[in-house]
Design a binder for these strands. Structure first.
Lengths: 342, 342
DNA sequence: CGTGGAGATGAGAGCGCTCTAATCCGGAGG
DNA sequence: CCTCCGGATTAGAGCGCTCTCATCTCCACG
């Protein structure tokens, strides 16, 4: 279990440890002869550099820490892909810390990563306080995805939720909808901005009177209950804009239970473009956030601080896009006429 | 950006670095007076122990590496929770490496973690070769989840797929089904054992004649196409056992497109009990694997090697359970009678 | 054949911590 | 008041590597 050291490799190859170090780091000024000698020894001994010692001595880990708020949320997976790809392309490795969905867990993960002396830290959907982020920023380059930060030391990457809301309203209005209700995300991350965007764009279209928000909590059952509430309205809304896909799915359930047809009786639009939305079964119109892009940009921001020495904060805002699927369609007055006729 | 060291803390507190070290590690034989002195200095300087140096000096990292094959698969999230909880309870922290769904990515992640000198390594759904696992086992305690290993150095944790298949067949047969078809997972992990279990238990019930497998690939569209194929059979199967939830969802789609009712015309059972299956909209009967349990057991196996010095391999097999939801119900001959009547 | 200089190699001092062995200290016991 | 003892404290030698200099090679050039 005890591993060979650079010292042993040096002895086996008949050179100095400094030379072995150079070879291991791929330095250019090493003769082919010695390089071969060293590599042979490395191979025979099964030598594996001790990153701990290396990092300690070089005061640089070339490692980025990624703290995800919740591993269960597949939203983060693509983000991590983007981070990992960009990091690898620049000679950095990544280490993932799991926030376990709590502020405490997140703080622990950050601490662990900082103790390991990561060069940079990507906080994805972090719920820790800004103070904790600033504290972290004293030891590493920090970028937060999906939240704001006012410190000069912290960069951010966000999606323009207002644009997202606008895309939804634009889409629905162009389909002839006017009574567009919203199912919000309660106190969840991003819920407030989405709701504000909804209200702002409704007013922009002169539909201030039609603004109507039912309380949700980003969950399926929350969406179900909110839809239940919306269905009792007179006149009934012709479209529902849910704050995320899961609650849209819940709403869809409730609406279909009521015997209404989606989208002809009622259109439903979600948010996030999760795997769920793409399922044939649901085929939900939704807003897509470029998650891989988030990761890529976040990583680049860190690299700028690390390698280019930038020291002012950059706040990146990315525009979301609309993905049209089955659950949205032209407004049809059928159901209302039906009511009148009966 | 440069961080305070133990040296500085010692000076500030007017004690030796050795004493600071003792305080940081919570040693018992330190007077309250000095301890307070040290903690005060730590706090004022914002000192954070350098894990790199600590690990280097102590030759122990108290860190477990977790390599997940694919972060996108939420299957692993619960497993990681189990690992993390158990590890934390025993004074270990975890670091997650992402295999990026490829053998190469996995090998890289393993190498990174080993270079960091993790004490143990949990390979979740790993696709690396056994040789690579054995190589890793030379440097850390290794346990593989969801695959076999013959080395004495490697423990494993697996689910008994045969029992899973049996639970499904038992359930369907007890509901009166006989013509139970299978949608398999092609060459995916676990697909073969699930298919074999299906066939074995069908024979056990004397239903060898009804064995019928349509090729899938663990995907939604694969399930859809397989169901398409199964619906052309005469007589048509009355139940479908899909190798995972996603293909079950695809099958469900196809079956409902055909105007058949689930479960009265055709029952559908999935496998894995993913979040998908739990959705009200699908409400899929499926097989649950105790994922958190996997993680817990895997971690305990590692701790046994690490702290108790076990040196023989242990292969743990866990039993899955059946989760009955909406998509399975008694066999009703209605559709067939309907055909006869027309 | 001597010389200069660029490229290749080596010596050695840390990096920040742990850990062993040695030292210190205060009070119980004589 | 001295001795002794055990807990509290410290000195100092590493852990395995990097990095700065110093040194050594070797060959083109005069």
């Amino acid at each position: 279990m005890t591993q060979p050291t650079m010292q042993q490799v040096a002895e086996a190859a008949g050179v100095s440890t400094a030379l072995v170090s150079l070879v291991m780091r791929g330095a250019p000024n090493v003769s082919d002869k010695r390089r071969a000698l060293v590599l042979k020894a490395v191979d025979e001994l099964g030598y594996r550099p001790n990153v701990l010692a290396r990092n300690l001595a070089s005061r640089r880990t070339h490692t980025l820490g990624v703290v995800v708020n919740d591993l269960h949320n597949s939203f983060f997976a693509e983000m991590v892909d983007g981070i990992q790809t960009t990091a690898a392309a620049n000679g950095y490795r990544i280490l993932i810390g799991n926030g376990q969905h709590s502020r405490r867990g997140e703080a622990d993960a950050i601490e662990t990563l900082l103790q390991l002396r990561v060069d940079g830290l990507v906080l994805a959907g972090a719920v820790v306080t800004e103070g904790e982020m600033e504290r972290a920023a004293k030891s590493a380059a920090v970028v937060a995805i999906g939240r704001t930060a006012s410190s000069l030391e912290i960069d951010t990457v966000n999606c323009d939720e207002s644009v997202g809301a606008r895309l939804v309203i634009d889409h629905l209005v162009s389909l002839g909808h006017r009574r567009i209700s919203h199912i919000d995300g309660g106190s969840g991350a991003g819920a407030a901005t989405r709701r504000q965007g909804y209200e702002a764009w409704m007013r922009e279209y002169g539909l201030g009177d039609c603004i109507n928000t039912a309380g949700g909590d980003f969950s399926e059952s929350g969406g179900y209950n909110a839809a239940d509430e919306l269905l009792t309205l007179h006149p009934r809304p012709t479209a529902i804009f849910a704050a995320n896909d899961l609650s849209a799915a819940g709403a869809l359930d409730r609406v279909e239970d009521a015997g209404l047809d989606v989208p002809s009786d009622l259109a439903i639009v979600g948010y996030d473009n999760t795997g769920l939305a793409a399922m044939h079964h649901l085929s939900l119109t939704t807003i897509n956030q470029p998650r891989g892009e988030f990761g890529r940009i976040a990583t680049e921001l860190i690299l700028q601080r690390l390698d280019d020495g930038r020291s002012t904060a950059v706040h990146h805002v990315v525009a979301p896009t609309l993905v049209v699927r089955r659950t949205s369609g032209p407004h049809v007055e059928a159901s209302r006429e039906g009511e009148v006729a009966s």
